[in-house]
Nucleic acid binder design. Structure first.
Ligand SMILES: [Mn+2]
Ligand SMILES: [Mn+2]
Ligand SMILES: [Mn+2]
Ligand SMILES: [Mn+2]
Lengths: 220, 220
DNA sequence: AATTATATTTAGACTAGCCTAAATATTTAT
DNA sequence: ATAAATATTTAGGCTAGTCTAAATATAATT
């Protein structure tokens, strides 16, 4: 049985590998987990003993297939709990991360499977991230960053690249939420800002900080 | 902020005090928490430092009013999570204790209040135990043990005195569940067993081990 | 009242998970 | 190729929570 701390390391390894590739460096892990590099080295050695990562001194760590399976299970739990908190308890999408961070560590063989059924097998969480199924498989969706659209393109908002609550709250204020349909009215090359039409009735200017962190699915 | 372990000690203190009264002895706590008396002494000293228990060497421990408030809050969380697991996720009443034992420690100012609202403010948990409200108040119900009824008495099952899963599963098999209406057909003085009629269509003999651990509300 | 039994506390040790500071390996720049 | 900068590991230490064994206090028995 894994401790909460071990589980958090697996999840961090998984997340960093997705963004920066393998092997994952000690310092990147220390940053992600807000801990010291020395602590990371200790824990990586422990995960190596348990055969959840491959590791050689000074060469970084890579999840083994068992480590990857466990990390995916954690992601599944995290995202299903987020769905529950938003769908059933009425939390905002900017409020659920820290709670899910705790709930994902509840030990049970079937709790999350029952939760998934109760939620009617959602495939994406409140931030538009895909939810792995019981076997670790998740739906892949064609998507691109809003900043890569051109004038005249129409698209639907399907996800976000940042998850901090300030960013999410700001998107909420702008009425930019998952499922929104929008059209690019104009792109200003100078600062990469965009004028967009959020269907049906909002027209607004958004900075590139926003457009670089919103995933959309372009209508063909 | 309290650790999971500190919270479990507060809950144990509360539970033992209800059954055996104050002060609560070191050994009773060690039994309840399946730990050593030495560990209990250490923790009691820590709770004393935090002003959550009154304590004098060799004289046992008593929850302070703040300690009692926190213990009641824990009981509230435990029972509301049990309701959720049974009502929403379809668990049996014999399966939810250990999960609630973990879920009760999730840290959040309003999670359990939202859960309570979502469950429509249940006043009793799946075992018939009362759920404290946000202010720590809970509904008191007139109840007595089934073994104290006499021939001809009619009553409704409202709770159980034991919570281990074997006992609960056995009650389930006997079709004795919260809300059942029953009538005492005959009492056998020799071994205190009873013949009862479980409305509408079951007539059965139950041992005193059962009748001593089932709470009923007698119809007047 | 003295003795014995039981309950409780203290002493000392262990693990997990974290830390800082120092040592060492690797990478980058000159 | 050497030196400087950066990354990583090691060494040693801290706290929370647990343990066993030994010491001490309280309660029960004779
Ligand atoms: Mn977590
Ligand atoms: Mn999410
Ligand atoms: Mn607990
Ligand atoms: Mn209960």
């Amino acid at each position: 049985m894994l401790s909460t701390s071990e589980e958090n390391y697996l999840k961090a390894l998984y997340k960093i590998a997705q963004v920066k590739g393998n092997p994952v460096s000690t310092n990147d892990l220390a940053d992600e987990l807000s801990t010291s590099a020395a602590s990371v080295t200790d824990m990586i050695k422990k995960l190596f003993e348990k055969k959840l990562v491959d590791y050689q001194r000074y060469q970084g760590a890579v999840l083994t297939s068992e480590g990857g399976r466990l990390a995916t299970e954690l992601v599944r739990r995290h995202r299903l709990w987020e769905c529950f908190l938003v769908e059933k308890l009425g939390y905002g999408w900017d409020e659920v991360h820290d709670l899910a961070e705790q709930l994902e560590h509840i030990k049970s063989v079937d709790l999350v499977d029952r939760l998934e059924e109760y939620l009617q097998f959602p495939r994406f969480d409140p931030h538009g991230d895909p939810i792995p199924d019981r076997h670790g498989k998740f739906t892949i969706r064609s998507q691109q960053l809003l900043c890569n659209l051109s004038q005249g393109d129409r698209a639907e908002v399907v996800g976000v690249a940042l998850h901090d609550s300030q960013f999410l709250r700001f998107l909420g204020e702008m009425h930019l939420e998952i499922g929104c349909v929008l059209e690019v009215l104009e792109v200003f090359e100078y600062d990469s800002s965009m004028r967009i039409h959020i269907v049906p009735d909002t027209k607004t200017l958004i900075s590139s900080i926003l457009s670089k962190n919103i995933y959309v699915k372009k209508y063909s």
